[in-house]
């Protein structure tokens, strides 16, 4: 018995194949302008006969052959708890939103918050600034190594971009600006997360979770231990597959 989980995110589409115990295959593709095609490509690649398919994420309604749709909140919670069963909360900084999810003792979702009104607390913000600095996000840790952050005071991603332009004109270094942006995103996310009674070990997911300097800054701002996993980006897809497998077993 197999289940497939597909997470259609704003930047990338992720898919995993699950056999009830472990993830046996995973695929990631850019979502691009056609989220449906990205989901279909992943489905074709992971296809097994009679596999139960669950979709999640923004484009979750687009894959016609899917058996079930579940929101990214529930899938993220399940997926992160699958990757690390010691966690009690999840912070996800995605391409166009960020979310905080609290888990109960049984790793069910107890409460959540979602910020999708403001780009300044998301991965998109860093992406925009790195483009302005003409630096690649993949080398981020090396780029900011040893730099201390400049304070970015604008509350809005668009205004912050013009603030960065004037900081660079004052000869503030690129790495210092990049660190400033990270501190700004981290403060914003930590304040947002603290609206819920967050405690214990926190799982950090989303594209930014893989960057160590960002995780360290987040940890400092939040005052809690943060962990991640090399498959953290797949948390939503894994959660979808796990839910699908449970659903199939119950039948």
């Amino acid at each position: 018995m197999y289940s497939i989980g597909i997470d259609s995110g704003s930047a990338t589409t992720k898919g995993v194949l699950y056999d009830g115990e472990k993830i046996i295959d995973k695929v990631i593709v850019p979502t691009g302008a056609n989220p449906r095609r990205a989901m279909e490509a992943i489905y074709d690649k992971l296809y097994r006969e009679n596999a139960y398919t669950v979709t999640t994420g923004y484009g979750r309604a687009l894959l016609k052959v899917a058996d079930k749709q579940v929101t990214e909140i529930t899938c993220h919670g399940k997926g992160a708890a699958f990757l690390d069963n010691q966690i009690s909360a999840i912070i996800d900084i995605g391409g166009q939103d960020s979310k905080v999810i609290l888990l109960d003792r049984d790793k069910n979702i107890k409460d959540f918050l979602m910020n999708d009104k403001c780009a300044a607390g998301t991965g998109r913000f860093l992406e925009v600034i790195m483009r302005l600095l003409q630096e690649d996000l993949c080398d981020f840790d090396d780029y900011v190594s040893g730099a201390s952050g400049t304070k970015i005071s604008s509350m809005c991603a668009v205004f912050a971009e013009s603030e960065v332009v004037s900081l660079l004109a004052q000869d503030v270094s690129g790495p210092s600006v990049a660190m400033g942006i990270i501190e700004s995103i981290s403060q914003r996310t930590a304040n947002f997360a603290k609206k819920l009674p967050i405690d214990g070990k926190v799982f950090f997911s989303g594209g930014l979770a893989q960057i160590e300097s960002i995780r360290k800054t987040m940890e400092k701002e939040l005052g809690l231990e943060m962990t991640t996993h090399e498959d953290a980006q797949f948390a939503g897809a894994i959660g979808a597959a796990v839910i699908g497998y449970q659903h199939m077993s119950r039948k």
Partner: peptide, 8 residues
């Protein structure tokens, strides 16, 4: 939001 809340 509503779907996630009701799933919970």
């Amino acid at each position: 939001r509503m779907a996630a809340f009701i799933e919970m």
